[in-house]
Design a protein around this nucleic acid. Structure first.
Lengths: 190, 190
DNA sequence: TAAAAAACTTGAACTACTTCAAGAAAAGTT
DNA sequence: AACTTTTCTTGAAGTAGTTCAAGTTTTTTA
Protein backbone atom coordinates (compact mmCIF):
# COMPACT_ATOMS: atom_id res chain seq x y z
CA UNK A 1 0.00 0.00 0.00
CA UNK A 2 1.14 3.52 -0.75
CA UNK A 3 1.91 5.73 2.23
CA UNK A 4 -0.55 8.46 1.35
CA UNK A 5 -3.48 6.67 2.96
CA UNK A 6 -1.47 6.13 6.14
CA UNK A 7 -0.53 9.78 6.16
CA UNK A 8 -4.12 10.79 5.67
CA UNK A 9 -5.24 8.57 8.53
CA UNK A 10 -2.50 9.90 10.79
CA UNK A 11 -3.65 13.43 10.25
CA UNK A 12 -6.67 12.47 12.33
CA UNK A 13 -5.53 9.70 14.69
CA UNK A 14 -2.26 8.19 15.92
CA UNK A 15 -1.46 4.68 14.79
CA UNK A 16 0.84 2.29 16.64
CA UNK A 17 3.52 0.55 14.55
CA UNK A 18 1.62 -2.71 15.03
CA UNK A 19 -1.52 -1.13 13.68
CA UNK A 20 0.35 0.15 10.67
CA UNK A 21 1.52 -3.41 10.07
CA UNK A 22 -2.04 -4.66 10.14
CA UNK A 23 -3.09 -2.07 7.61
CA UNK A 24 -0.09 -2.68 5.38
CA UNK A 25 -0.82 -6.36 5.20
CA UNK A 26 -4.58 -6.03 4.76
CA UNK A 27 -4.60 -3.42 2.06
CA UNK A 28 -3.20 -3.24 -1.43
CA UNK A 29 -3.29 -0.81 -4.27
CA UNK A 30 -4.90 -1.34 -7.62
CA UNK A 31 -4.76 0.48 -10.89
CA UNK A 32 -7.84 1.60 -12.70
CA UNK A 33 -7.70 2.56 -16.34
CA UNK A 34 -9.26 5.76 -17.60
CA UNK A 35 -12.98 5.23 -18.29
CA UNK A 36 -13.06 1.96 -16.38
CA UNK A 37 -16.14 1.55 -14.18
CA UNK A 38 -15.81 0.30 -10.61
CA UNK A 39 -19.53 0.58 -9.91
CA UNK A 40 -22.57 0.52 -12.14
CA UNK A 41 -26.17 1.49 -11.56
CA UNK A 42 -28.11 -1.49 -10.22
CA UNK A 43 -25.11 -3.15 -8.56
CA UNK A 44 -24.75 -3.25 -4.80
CA UNK A 45 -21.69 -1.27 -3.80
CA UNK A 46 -19.39 -3.37 -1.61
CA UNK A 47 -16.17 -1.43 -1.87
CA UNK A 48 -14.82 1.91 -0.79
CA UNK A 49 -12.01 3.55 -2.73
CA UNK A 50 -9.26 5.81 -1.50
CA UNK A 51 -7.66 7.68 -4.38
CA UNK A 52 -3.88 7.73 -4.23
CA UNK A 53 -3.35 9.14 -7.68
CA UNK A 54 -5.65 10.18 -10.46
CA UNK A 55 -9.28 11.18 -10.59
CA UNK A 56 -12.57 9.34 -10.24
CA UNK A 57 -16.14 10.48 -10.56
CA UNK A 58 -19.58 9.40 -9.51
CA UNK A 59 -22.24 10.02 -12.14
CA UNK A 60 -25.73 9.11 -13.18
CA UNK A 61 -27.40 8.69 -16.54
CA UNK A 62 -30.46 10.91 -16.66
CA UNK A 63 -33.78 10.26 -18.39
CA UNK A 64 -32.44 11.75 -21.63
CA UNK A 65 -29.50 9.35 -21.62
CA UNK A 66 -26.98 12.03 -20.71
CA UNK A 67 -24.33 11.58 -18.03
CA UNK A 68 -24.36 13.94 -15.07
CA UNK A 69 -21.45 14.05 -12.68
CA UNK A 70 -22.49 14.24 -9.03
CA UNK A 71 -19.09 14.02 -7.40
CA UNK A 72 -15.43 14.12 -8.29
CA UNK A 73 -12.70 12.48 -6.26
CA UNK A 74 -9.01 13.27 -6.49
CA UNK A 75 -5.89 12.44 -4.48
CA UNK A 76 -6.69 11.77 -0.80
CA UNK A 77 -10.42 11.49 -1.25
CA UNK A 78 -12.67 8.55 -0.53
CA UNK A 79 -15.28 7.65 -3.07
CA UNK A 80 -18.15 5.16 -2.83
CA UNK A 81 -21.92 4.95 -2.66
CA UNK A 82 -22.52 4.87 1.09
CA UNK A 83 -26.24 4.32 0.81
CA UNK A 84 -25.85 1.21 -1.31
CA UNK A 85 -22.91 0.12 0.83
CA UNK A 86 -24.74 0.39 4.15
CA UNK A 87 -28.20 -0.71 3.11
CA UNK A 88 -27.21 -3.44 0.63
CA UNK A 89 -29.40 -1.88 -1.99
CA UNK A 90 -28.74 -1.42 -5.71
CA UNK A 91 -26.83 1.74 -6.43
CA UNK A 92 -28.23 4.66 -8.42
CA UNK A 93 -24.72 5.63 -9.52
CA UNK A 94 -21.80 4.83 -11.72
CA UNK A 95 -18.27 5.29 -10.39
CA UNK A 96 -15.62 5.64 -13.06
CA UNK A 97 -11.97 6.61 -13.45
CA UNK A 98 -11.65 9.95 -15.23
CA UNK A 99 -7.87 9.45 -15.49
CA UNK A 100 -5.68 6.41 -15.10
CA UNK A 101 -5.80 6.11 -11.35
CA UNK A 102 -4.22 4.32 -8.42
CA UNK A 103 -6.53 3.49 -5.55
CA UNK A 104 -6.77 1.51 -2.36
CA UNK A 105 -9.93 -0.53 -2.88
CA UNK A 106 -11.29 -1.93 0.38
CA UNK A 107 -13.97 -4.59 0.37
CA UNK A 108 -16.67 -4.31 2.99
CA UNK A 109 -15.68 -7.60 4.67
CA UNK A 110 -12.06 -6.49 4.82
CA UNK A 111 -12.98 -3.11 6.20
CA UNK A 112 -15.23 -4.55 8.87
CA UNK A 113 -12.42 -6.87 9.97
CA UNK A 114 -9.92 -4.02 10.08
CA UNK A 115 -12.30 -1.86 12.08
CA UNK A 116 -12.57 -4.64 14.66
CA UNK A 117 -8.81 -5.04 14.86
CA UNK A 118 -8.21 -1.27 14.96
CA UNK A 119 -11.29 0.32 16.52
CA UNK A 120 -9.50 3.67 16.49
CA UNK A 121 -10.14 3.79 12.76
CA UNK A 122 -13.82 4.27 13.45
CA UNK A 123 -12.85 7.75 14.60
CA UNK A 124 -10.94 8.45 11.41
CA UNK A 125 -13.86 7.44 9.21
CA UNK A 126 -16.29 9.31 11.43
CA UNK A 127 -14.40 12.56 11.06
CA UNK A 128 -13.80 12.12 7.34
CA UNK A 129 -17.42 11.36 6.59
CA UNK A 130 -18.71 14.21 8.76
CA UNK A 131 -16.48 16.57 6.81
CA UNK A 132 -17.71 15.10 3.53
CA UNK A 133 -21.27 15.65 4.63
CA UNK A 134 -20.41 19.23 5.52
CA UNK A 135 -18.90 19.70 2.07
CA UNK A 136 -22.04 18.26 0.45
CA UNK A 137 -24.12 20.82 2.31
CA UNK A 138 -21.94 23.63 1.05
CA UNK A 139 -22.29 22.22 -2.44
CA UNK A 140 -26.07 22.39 -2.15
CA UNK A 141 -25.76 25.94 -0.88
CA UNK A 142 -23.74 26.95 -3.92
CA UNK A 143 -26.17 25.24 -6.28
CA UNK A 144 -29.04 27.10 -4.64
CA UNK A 145 -27.61 30.57 -4.38
CA UNK A 146 -25.33 31.10 -7.36
CA UNK A 147 -26.11 31.59 -11.03
CA UNK A 148 -24.47 29.27 -13.55
CA UNK A 149 -21.82 31.86 -14.30
CA UNK A 150 -21.09 32.42 -10.60
CA UNK A 151 -20.79 28.68 -10.01
CA UNK A 152 -18.32 28.39 -12.85
CA UNK A 153 -16.10 31.25 -11.66
CA UNK A 154 -16.30 30.11 -8.06
CA UNK A 155 -15.28 26.57 -8.94
CA UNK A 156 -12.57 27.81 -11.26
CA UNK A 157 -11.10 30.00 -8.52
CA UNK A 158 -11.29 27.24 -5.94
CA UNK A 159 -9.86 24.45 -8.10
CA UNK A 160 -8.03 25.97 -11.09
CA UNK A 161 -5.74 22.93 -11.62
CA UNK A 162 -8.74 20.68 -11.61
CA UNK A 163 -10.52 22.52 -14.40
CA UNK A 164 -7.48 21.82 -16.58
CA UNK A 165 -7.55 18.13 -15.76
CA UNK A 166 -11.02 17.01 -16.67
CA UNK A 167 -13.21 17.55 -19.74
CA UNK A 168 -15.34 20.67 -19.58
CA UNK A 169 -18.58 18.83 -20.16
CA UNK A 170 -18.03 16.87 -16.95
CA UNK A 171 -17.50 20.06 -14.99
CA UNK A 172 -20.55 21.62 -16.63
CA UNK A 173 -22.73 18.72 -15.51
CA UNK A 174 -21.18 18.80 -12.02
CA UNK A 175 -22.12 22.47 -11.78
CA UNK A 176 -25.56 21.69 -13.20
CA UNK A 177 -25.60 23.46 -16.53
CA UNK A 178 -25.15 22.36 -20.12
CA UNK A 179 -21.80 21.99 -21.86
CA UNK A 180 -22.95 24.51 -24.46
CA UNK A 181 -23.71 27.07 -21.80
CA UNK A 182 -20.30 26.54 -20.24
CA UNK A 183 -18.73 27.23 -23.59
CA UNK A 184 -20.59 30.54 -23.76
CA UNK A 185 -19.60 31.50 -20.22
CA UNK A 186 -15.96 30.86 -21.06
CA UNK A 187 -16.21 32.90 -24.23
CA UNK A 188 -17.83 35.74 -22.30
CA UNK A 189 -20.91 35.48 -24.49
CA UNK A 190 -23.37 35.59 -21.68
CA UNK B 1 -32.33 12.35 28.66
CA UNK B 2 -35.14 10.83 26.66
CA UNK B 3 -34.73 7.20 25.62
CA UNK B 4 -35.07 7.80 21.90
CA UNK B 5 -31.41 8.74 21.50
CA UNK B 6 -30.36 5.60 23.37
CA UNK B 7 -32.62 3.53 21.18
CA UNK B 8 -31.20 5.12 18.06
CA UNK B 9 -27.65 4.45 19.20
CA UNK B 10 -28.51 0.85 20.07
CA UNK B 11 -29.81 0.24 16.59
CA UNK B 12 -26.18 0.47 15.51
CA UNK B 13 -24.08 -0.63 18.48
CA UNK B 14 -24.56 -2.43 21.80
CA UNK B 15 -24.13 -0.38 24.93
CA UNK B 16 -23.24 -1.80 28.34
CA UNK B 17 -25.40 -0.64 31.28
CA UNK B 18 -22.40 1.30 32.57
CA UNK B 19 -22.09 3.09 29.27
CA UNK B 20 -25.76 3.95 29.33
CA UNK B 21 -25.20 5.44 32.78
CA UNK B 22 -22.39 7.60 31.46
CA UNK B 23 -24.59 8.88 28.66
CA UNK B 24 -27.55 9.46 30.95
CA UNK B 25 -25.50 11.58 33.28
CA UNK B 26 -23.66 13.53 30.60
CA UNK B 27 -26.61 14.44 28.43
CA UNK B 28 -29.77 16.37 29.01
CA UNK B 29 -32.66 17.52 26.94
CA UNK B 30 -33.59 21.05 26.13
CA UNK B 31 -36.63 22.68 24.65
CA UNK B 32 -36.45 25.01 21.72
CA UNK B 33 -39.31 27.29 20.89
CA UNK B 34 -40.67 27.58 17.38
CA UNK B 35 -38.58 30.07 15.33
CA UNK B 36 -35.80 30.10 17.90
CA UNK B 37 -32.31 30.03 16.35
CA UNK B 38 -29.64 27.70 17.72
CA UNK B 39 -27.06 28.77 15.15
CA UNK B 40 -26.62 31.93 13.11
CA UNK B 41 -24.51 32.72 10.10
CA UNK B 42 -21.09 33.92 11.20
CA UNK B 43 -21.07 31.99 14.49
CA UNK B 44 -18.82 29.00 14.99
CA UNK B 45 -20.97 25.93 15.50
CA UNK B 46 -19.98 24.10 18.69
CA UNK B 47 -23.00 21.95 19.27
CA UNK B 48 -24.70 19.01 17.64
CA UNK B 49 -28.41 18.46 18.09
CA UNK B 50 -30.36 15.22 18.20
CA UNK B 51 -34.03 15.86 17.64
CA UNK B 52 -36.27 13.96 20.04
CA UNK B 53 -39.47 15.73 19.13
CA UNK B 54 -40.32 18.46 16.69
CA UNK B 55 -38.68 19.79 13.60
CA UNK B 56 -35.60 21.87 12.90
CA UNK B 57 -34.17 23.27 9.72
CA UNK B 58 -30.89 24.56 8.39
CA UNK B 59 -31.26 27.54 6.07
CA UNK B 60 -29.38 30.38 4.46
CA UNK B 61 -30.33 33.89 3.52
CA UNK B 62 -29.59 34.44 -0.15
CA UNK B 63 -28.39 37.58 -1.88
CA UNK B 64 -31.97 38.79 -2.32
CA UNK B 65 -32.64 38.46 1.39
CA UNK B 66 -34.84 35.39 1.03
CA UNK B 67 -34.51 32.32 3.22
CA UNK B 68 -33.69 29.02 1.56
CA UNK B 69 -33.96 25.78 3.48
CA UNK B 70 -31.09 23.39 2.85
CA UNK B 71 -32.00 20.66 5.29
CA UNK B 72 -34.84 19.60 7.53
CA UNK B 73 -34.43 17.49 10.61
CA UNK B 74 -37.18 15.61 12.39
CA UNK B 75 -37.41 12.99 15.14
CA UNK B 76 -34.25 10.83 15.33
CA UNK B 77 -32.12 13.05 13.13
CA UNK B 78 -28.93 14.85 13.98
CA UNK B 79 -28.55 18.42 12.83
CA UNK B 80 -25.50 20.67 12.91
CA UNK B 81 -22.98 22.39 10.65
CA UNK B 82 -20.19 19.83 10.53
CA UNK B 83 -17.84 22.04 8.54
CA UNK B 84 -18.00 24.85 11.06
CA UNK B 85 -17.90 22.33 13.90
CA UNK B 86 -14.77 20.52 12.70
CA UNK B 87 -12.83 23.42 11.25
CA UNK B 88 -13.75 26.07 13.85
CA UNK B 89 -14.82 28.41 11.10
CA UNK B 90 -17.83 30.74 10.98
CA UNK B 91 -20.94 28.99 9.74
CA UNK B 92 -22.73 29.86 6.52
CA UNK B 93 -26.00 28.64 7.98
CA UNK B 94 -28.82 29.31 10.35
CA UNK B 95 -30.34 26.45 12.32
CA UNK B 96 -33.82 27.09 13.61
CA UNK B 97 -36.74 25.28 15.20
CA UNK B 98 -39.65 25.00 12.77
CA UNK B 99 -41.89 23.68 15.56
CA UNK B 100 -41.55 23.71 19.32
CA UNK B 101 -38.93 21.02 19.67
CA UNK B 102 -37.16 18.85 22.19
CA UNK B 103 -33.53 18.09 21.50
CA UNK B 104 -30.41 16.64 23.05
CA UNK B 105 -27.86 19.41 22.54
CA UNK B 106 -24.30 18.19 22.91
CA UNK B 107 -21.42 20.61 23.23
CA UNK B 108 -18.24 19.74 21.41
CA UNK B 109 -16.22 19.45 24.64
CA UNK B 110 -18.84 17.16 26.15
CA UNK B 111 -18.99 15.03 23.03
CA UNK B 112 -15.23 14.66 22.83
CA UNK B 113 -15.15 13.55 26.46
CA UNK B 114 -17.94 11.03 25.89
CA UNK B 115 -16.21 9.66 22.83
CA UNK B 116 -13.10 9.02 24.89
CA UNK B 117 -15.08 7.31 27.64
CA UNK B 118 -17.14 5.29 25.16
CA UNK B 119 -15.01 4.81 22.03
CA UNK B 120 -17.67 2.52 20.63
CA UNK B 121 -19.73 5.61 19.94
CA UNK B 122 -17.28 6.57 17.22
CA UNK B 123 -18.76 3.70 15.25
CA UNK B 124 -22.28 4.94 15.78
CA UNK B 125 -21.44 8.43 14.57
CA UNK B 126 -19.41 7.03 11.70
CA UNK B 127 -22.32 4.99 10.41
CA UNK B 128 -24.86 7.75 10.93
CA UNK B 129 -22.79 10.34 9.13
CA UNK B 130 -21.95 8.03 6.24
CA UNK B 131 -25.64 7.43 5.77
CA UNK B 132 -26.32 11.17 5.94
CA UNK B 133 -23.70 11.75 3.29
CA UNK B 134 -25.32 9.08 1.13
CA UNK B 135 -28.66 10.79 1.56
CA UNK B 136 -27.13 14.13 0.58
CA UNK B 137 -25.87 12.55 -2.63
CA UNK B 138 -29.32 11.24 -3.44
CA UNK B 139 -30.68 14.69 -2.76
CA UNK B 140 -28.28 16.17 -5.30
CA UNK B 141 -29.30 13.47 -7.76
CA UNK B 142 -32.97 14.39 -7.38
CA UNK B 143 -32.21 18.10 -7.76
CA UNK B 144 -30.28 17.35 -10.94
CA UNK B 145 -32.61 14.94 -12.65
CA UNK B 146 -36.14 15.91 -11.74
CA UNK B 147 -38.26 18.87 -12.80
CA UNK B 148 -39.80 21.06 -10.11
CA UNK B 149 -43.09 19.24 -10.44
CA UNK B 150 -41.42 15.83 -10.19
CA UNK B 151 -39.48 16.90 -7.11
CA UNK B 152 -42.67 18.05 -5.45
CA UNK B 153 -44.58 14.84 -6.14
CA UNK B 154 -41.62 12.69 -5.21
CA UNK B 155 -41.16 14.47 -1.90
CA UNK B 156 -44.86 14.44 -1.23
CA UNK B 157 -45.02 10.67 -1.81
CA UNK B 158 -41.97 10.03 0.33
CA UNK B 159 -42.93 12.26 3.25
CA UNK B 160 -46.65 13.00 3.10
CA UNK B 161 -46.97 13.71 6.87
CA UNK B 162 -44.10 16.10 6.66
CA UNK B 163 -45.68 18.24 3.96
CA UNK B 164 -48.59 18.81 6.35
CA UNK B 165 -46.29 19.85 9.14
CA UNK B 166 -44.24 22.67 7.72
CA UNK B 167 -45.13 25.79 5.72
CA UNK B 168 -45.20 25.27 1.99
CA UNK B 169 -42.75 28.03 1.28
CA UNK B 170 -40.10 26.20 3.29
CA UNK B 171 -40.66 23.03 1.30
CA UNK B 172 -40.59 25.01 -1.93
CA UNK B 173 -37.18 26.46 -1.09
CA UNK B 174 -35.92 23.04 0.05
CA UNK B 175 -36.91 21.65 -3.33
CA UNK B 176 -35.37 24.69 -5.03
CA UNK B 177 -38.30 26.47 -6.57
CA UNK B 178 -40.39 29.49 -5.64
CA UNK B 179 -43.36 29.44 -3.29
CA UNK B 180 -45.50 30.83 -6.12
CA UNK B 181 -44.54 28.01 -8.41
CA UNK B 182 -45.36 25.47 -5.73
CA UNK B 183 -48.78 26.98 -5.43
CA UNK B 184 -49.30 26.49 -9.15
CA UNK B 185 -48.08 22.91 -9.05
CA UNK B 186 -50.53 22.13 -6.27
CA UNK B 187 -53.37 23.78 -8.16
CA UNK B 188 -52.48 21.77 -11.27
CA UNK B 189 -51.88 25.01 -13.16
CA UNK B 190 -48.61 23.91 -14.68
C1' DT C 1 -63.10 37.77 19.07
C1' DA C 2 -60.88 41.32 16.76
C1' DA C 3 -56.68 42.67 14.91
C1' DA C 4 -52.26 41.56 13.18
C1' DA C 5 -49.15 38.62 11.16
C1' DA C 6 -47.98 34.82 8.41
C1' DA C 7 -48.90 31.87 4.61
C1' DC C 8 -50.94 30.95 0.20
C1' DT C 9 -52.82 32.09 -4.57
C1' DT C 10 -53.19 34.11 -9.18
C1' DG C 11 -51.94 36.06 -13.68
C1' DA C 12 -48.83 38.66 -16.57
C1' DA C 13 -44.32 39.82 -17.95
C1' DC C 14 -39.75 38.32 -18.01
C1' DT C 15 -35.18 35.64 -18.13
C1' DA C 16 -31.60 32.32 -17.32
C1' DC C 17 -31.06 28.75 -18.99
C1' DT C 18 -31.79 24.38 -22.45
C1' DT C 19 -32.07 22.08 -26.80
C1' DC C 20 -30.89 21.33 -31.38
C1' DA C 21 -27.96 21.14 -35.25
C1' DA C 22 -23.83 21.71 -37.45
C1' DG C 23 -19.10 22.60 -37.71
C1' DA C 24 -14.29 23.23 -35.77
C1' DA C 25 -10.64 21.90 -32.88
C1' DA C 26 -8.15 18.77 -30.10
C1' DA C 27 -6.78 14.28 -28.56
C1' DG C 28 -6.12 9.46 -29.18
C1' DT C 29 -5.09 5.50 -32.29
C1' DT C 30 -3.04 2.73 -36.08
C1' DA D 1 0.77 11.08 -40.95
C1' DA D 2 -3.81 9.97 -41.61
C1' DC D 3 -7.98 8.58 -39.52
C1' DT D 4 -11.29 8.28 -35.80
C1' DT D 5 -13.13 9.69 -31.78
C1' DT D 6 -13.83 12.92 -28.37
C1' DT D 7 -14.42 17.49 -26.92
C1' DC D 8 -15.60 22.27 -27.64
C1' DT D 9 -18.04 26.21 -30.00
C1' DT D 10 -21.74 29.01 -32.08
C1' DG D 11 -26.32 30.89 -33.04
C1' DA D 12 -31.30 30.47 -33.20
C1' DA D 13 -35.45 29.01 -31.16
C1' DG D 14 -37.82 27.37 -27.18
C1' DT D 15 -39.22 26.75 -22.15
C1' DA D 16 -39.24 25.83 -17.25
C1' DG D 17 -38.98 28.36 -14.18
C1' DT D 18 -38.77 33.44 -11.62
C1' DT D 19 -40.37 37.93 -10.24
C1' DC D 20 -43.69 41.26 -9.15
C1' DA D 21 -47.85 42.97 -7.36
C1' DA D 22 -52.10 42.47 -5.43
C1' DG D 23 -55.57 39.94 -3.23
C1' DT D 24 -57.23 35.99 -0.20
C1' DT D 25 -56.98 32.73 3.34
C1' DT D 26 -55.22 30.88 7.55
C1' DT D 27 -52.95 31.19 11.91
C1' DT D 28 -51.37 33.61 15.88
C1' DT D 29 -51.67 36.98 19.39
C1' DA D 30 -53.66 40.16 22.57
Amino acid sequence: MHTSLLQHIQKHINLEPSEIDILESALSISKIKKKELVLQEGQVCNTIYFIIKGCMRQYIINSKGAEQTLQFGIENWWITDYLSYHNHIPSHFYIQAVENSIVVAIEKTTLEAILIEIPKLERYFRIVSQKSFGAAQMRIKFLFTMSAEERYHHFNNLHPEFVQRVPQYMIASYLDFSAEFMSKIRAGKV
